[in-house]
Design a protein around this nucleic acid. Structure first.
Length: 293
DNA sequence: CGCATCCCCTGCCTGC
DNA sequence: TGCAGGCAGGGGATGC
């Protein structure tokens, strides 16, 4: 599921339960996800208090009172669900565990109630690690990371700086987390459609000879922020059966203009084009060849 | 260095 | 019905 809006939705679901809670114990149901959990993963979390639940790009950052941060990435298929003590395992015939539940965080919330936060990940492309807060910025996962596509930090001047002399197609450049951190396949396709830019176009064509952003670069920055903000407001997108931490569904997938709409008519008013699917860097790109140039 | 290709893993959908 | 093939929202390693 997770691009930035989905991870942010997860963060907002976990924060009310986890912030201020004590981690009573952590149950690993296998030795690794994508990577091993690392030495001392369980021991260093046990008995600690969660001070905040944050996010950077597609990473969840759970700060604890030991000064260590629980860093979690959902990969392609990771999800969390929260089980409160009122819906205990005694109510379920086979307990609360379902297939691909890999990690259980047993919490005592700030209200003194017990709760479990359960990580499920069929494909196991997700990962978790404990990192010292002071070392986080220099960690390889974060050191070269680009800016967030939310708020007002992303503008055309930033894009111009990154795209100057860049030969890579726009699709590849926008997926590169070193440029903008948090964009994924869906929202790159949607932002390019909104802007009327071809995903195959060379990135440097949005920069003038003197290094200034073109009008299209202005528009692209505007639409990247817009699509991300709208998706967050919609609770993210629920593809297949992915759900939020409380089991509810996001609904931004109903707002896709091109993603997953191969051979369907372009939705741009006045455009008679058809949405095409091509493969770029091994992944599907959806776009309208008529209005995206 | 920049860019393209392939891979990690499991599940689901399609077509034969 | 069964099975093979293709596809999936992420990121990293490799090779040119």
């Amino acid at each position: 599921m997770p691009e930035l809006p989905e991870v942010e939705t997860v963060r907002r679901g976990l924060a009310p339960v986890a912030e201020g809670a004590k981690i009573v114990w952590v149950e690993l149901r296998r030795a690794d996800l994508r990577f091993p959990f690392g030495d001392g993963f369980v021991e260093n979390l046990k008995g600690r208090k969660v001070t905040s639940v944050g996010r950077r790009a597609k990473y969840l950052l759970v700060d604890t009172d030991s000064g260590m941060v629980l860093v979690m990435h959902l990969g392609m298929s990771g999800s969390f669900r929260v089980v409160q003590n009122s819906e205990d395992e005694t109510n379920a015939p086979n307990g609360i565990i379902v297939k691909h539940d890999h990690v259980l965080f047993h919490l005592e919330t700030k209200n003194g109630k017990s709760a479990k936060v359960i990580y499920n990940d069929p494909r196991r492309f997700g990962f978790m690690a404990l990192i010292e807060r002071a070392e986080l910025a220099d960690h390889p996962w974060f050191a070269d990371m680009g800016i967030e596509p939310t708020g007002n930090t992303l503008d055309s001047a930033y894009l111009a700086g990154k795209f100057h002399n860049k030969q890579a197609p726009l699709k590849a450049a926008l997926l590169d987390q070193k440029m903008i951190a948090g964009l994924g396949n869906i929202y790159v396709c949607e932002a390019l459609w909104r802007t009327g830019l071809s995903p195959k176009r060379k990135s440097c064509t949005l920069v003038t000879k003197t290094g200034k952003p073109t009008a299209k670069a202005d528009l692209l920055a505007f639409h990247i922020r817009g699509v991300i903000d709208e998706a967050i407001d919609a609770g993210g997108s629920s593809l297949r059966d992915h759900r939020q931490t409380d089991g509810s569904l996001g609904y931004f997938q109903h707002g896709f203009a091109v993603y997953g709409r191969e051979n369907d008519p372009c939705l741009k008013p006045g455009c008679s084009g058809t949405v095409q699917r091509i493969i770029q860097a091994g992944r599907s790109t959806f776009y309208c060849t008529k209005c995206q140039k």
